[in-house]
Simulated scan of single mutants.
Amino acid sequence: MTALVWEYLQEYENEREEVLDAVETVFRSGRLILGKSVKGFEEEYAAYHGVPHCVGLDNGTNAVKLGLQALEVGPGDEVITVANTAVPTVTAIEGAGATPVFVDIRPDTYLMDTDQVAAAITSRTKAILPVHLYGQCVDMTPLTELARRHGLVILEDCAQAHGARQHGRMAGTFGGVGAFSFYPTKILGTYGDAGGAITSDDTVADNLRHLRYYGMKDRYYVVRNPGHNSRLDELHAEILRRKLKRLDGYLEARRALALRYDEALRDTELVLPAVAPGNLHSYYLYVVRHPKRDEIIEALKGYDIALNISYPWPIHTMTGFAHLGYREGALPVTERLAGEIFSLPMYPALSHDVQDKVISALREVLATR
């Protein structure tokens, strides 16, 4: 059984009655698409972030893609982002017709190096797309100033940063759109694919609602073309409504687990997660570093512990993105860290006993390296 399956089953056992009640509520409502559950979740998720609009979508990839399109980013435009992210970030940019342009990352937080963004801006640049990776925010102060100065839009990829904050402000509220994934393993996840986008801009919100529903404003009347079939369905929306009430509890549990890792491993040779000044980390992942990463992961298999790497291949080095014209060596920090990072188990239902087993095994393995 994989760690992700184990995590899902534990969570389901803890919340089974509420999940099944959500299913029963939707199935007995007689409305399965864009009904009360979607509307309710959108209102509640927007309120959680202190913004007027949330638009429910079918997945996090389309939250990025449609978010860019709603901001009028498209063919001929460039979008500045990073290569140490999940592939969907970049496929969404290309899906909107734009071209991704990569900058390197900071070696301490693994987040976009905002000092490199200004030099990447060209006459074709239309947007900056910071990825709030692993659960904490990119430094948004210089990015918002650059966007203002150059007339650019910002879309925040918040797929891994539900509930994260910077100087008290929530991830997803700095730019024109905050794009979220509600994939099952996310901090706030449902039992299938789902996504959403938040915004404070009425026009952008209208654009998103049109785009997710074939480009229609009213039934059968298209105002934007091409549109998409990218609606959040009622079932996932109702499950998310129930789980949203637990989100602060999920975050509290993750932060407590991260603190236990910090205290137990700070005297080892592992490089532990660094929290940037002003950030409140949500710990979607607890990512550590070691130059002998692969040896460590292999040795831990002997303890029946399987660990994940997010992400072992920077996007610009993949053959599927060779058309972007990058070569190995173009992003040296990204490339070096991709060979050293790995994640320790992190989910709210993780027991102290299991966590202690991981810590003990990891310390034993590190002692032999």
Rank of each mutant, 00 (worst) to 15 (best):
I341W: 00
F174R: 06
G196K: 05
P107H: 12
G135R: 03
T61Y: 01
P348R: 12
G196A: 15
L366C: 11
T89S: 14
V204D: 03
L155F: 01
G30Q: 08
L244W: 09
R28V: 00
T319R: 12
G67L: 11
A361R: 04
A63Q: 09
A22T: 07
L265A: 11
F342W: 09
A164D: 01
G74N: 11
P314L: 06
V333K: 06
F342N: 00
V55M: 07
R246H: 15
H162E: 08
F41I: 05
A194G: 15
S37M: 02
D353S: 11
G30C: 05
A70N: 09
L247E: 03
A96D: 05
T317W: 04
A361Y: 01
A253E: 15
A330I: 03
D58E: 12
L270S: 03
H316Y: 04
T109R: 03
K36V: 05
P100I: 07
A96R: 00
V64F: 06
Y261M: 03
N84S: 13
R363S: 09
A256I: 01
T368G: 01
P184M: 03
I121W: 09
K301L: 14
Y286E: 09
P291C: 12
L272A: 08
V23C: 13
S200G: 15
I341R: 13
Y284V: 00
K126A: 15
V287D: 03
L362W: 07
D113T: 06
R336M: 12
G50A: 12
G329R: 09
R254N: 14
Y311P: 13
K36M: 05
G227N: 11
P277N: 10
G50L: 10
L324K: 07
E145Y: 03
V64E: 06
G189Q: 13
D294F: 03
V26S: 06
E269Y: 03
L111G: 05
L34I: 04
T368A: 13
A171K: 01
G30H: 02
L251N: 01
G50Y: 11
T122K: 00
I154W: 00
D262H: 14
E340L: 11
D294P: 00
Q10S: 12
N279H: 01
G74E: 10
A258C: 10
R231P: 00
R212V: 14
N207A: 13
V354N: 03
L57T: 08
G329V: 10
L4V: 14
M140G: 07
Y347R: 10
R260Q: 13
A92V: 04
D193K: 13
R255M: 11
S181G: 09
A299R: 13
A63N: 10
G56K: 04
